[in-house]
C-alpha cells in the first residue's frame, strides 16, 4: 500500500515532502518502545507511535522504516520534521488512537511484521 492510500484509510496528514505520498509500505508495527521497534520490525515497515521525539526518527533511519505515523493527534516539533525531511522519512499524523489506527490498516490488508 502507498502512503497516499494510508493517509485516506487513517484520516492522516502528511507532515513531510509531497513526494513521500508515493512511498510503499509493506507492513505495520504499533509501538512506543524503540527497542521493540529495533528488535521486531522489518524493512519498509510503517511505525505507528505516540513517541514524537527525535529518537523515533533515528530509530526509523537505523532500521529503514517506511515512515512514522504519530497517533492521538500528537505533533512532533519543527526540528523533528526537518530531520525527517533530511533523512527522507515520511511522517504522518492522525487524530485516531493507536489501537483504532492499527485496526483500520489491518482490515485494509496490511499485515504485522510477524506475519510476513
Amino acid at each position: 500500500m502507498k502512503i497516499k492510500e494510508v493517509l485516506e484509510v487513517i484520516d492522516a496528514e502528511l507532515l513531510t515532502k509531497p513526494e513521500h505520498m508515493e512511498r510503499q509500505v509493506l507492513s505495520v508495527c504499533g509501538a512506543d518502545l524503540m527497542s521493540d521497534v529495533l528488535a521486531f520490525t522489518k524493512a519498509k515497515t510503517l511505525l505507528l507511535t505516540g513517541l514524537t521525539s527525535i529518537q523515533a526518527i533515528r530509530t526509523a533511519q537505523v532500521v529503514d522504516l517506511a515512515g512514522v505515523v504519530f497517533v492521538r493527534g500528537k505533533r512532533p516539533s519543527p526540528e523533528v520534521v526537518e530531520m525527517a525531511n533530511e533523512e527522507d522519512l515520511p511522517l504522518l499524523v492522525t487524530h485516531h488512537p493507536l489501537y483504532e489506527t492499527c485496526g483500520k490498516l489491518y482490515t485494509c490488508g496490511l499485515k504485522g511484521c510477524s506475519e510476513l
Binding site: 518502545l33 521497534v37 513517541l51 521525539s53
Partner: peptide, 16 residues
Amino acid sequence: REMGFGAGMGLPNIRR
C-alpha cells in the same frame, strides 16, 4: 523511558 528507551531490551537486542 519517555524517549522510548530504558525498557530493558538494549543488551538483549545487541546480543541478538
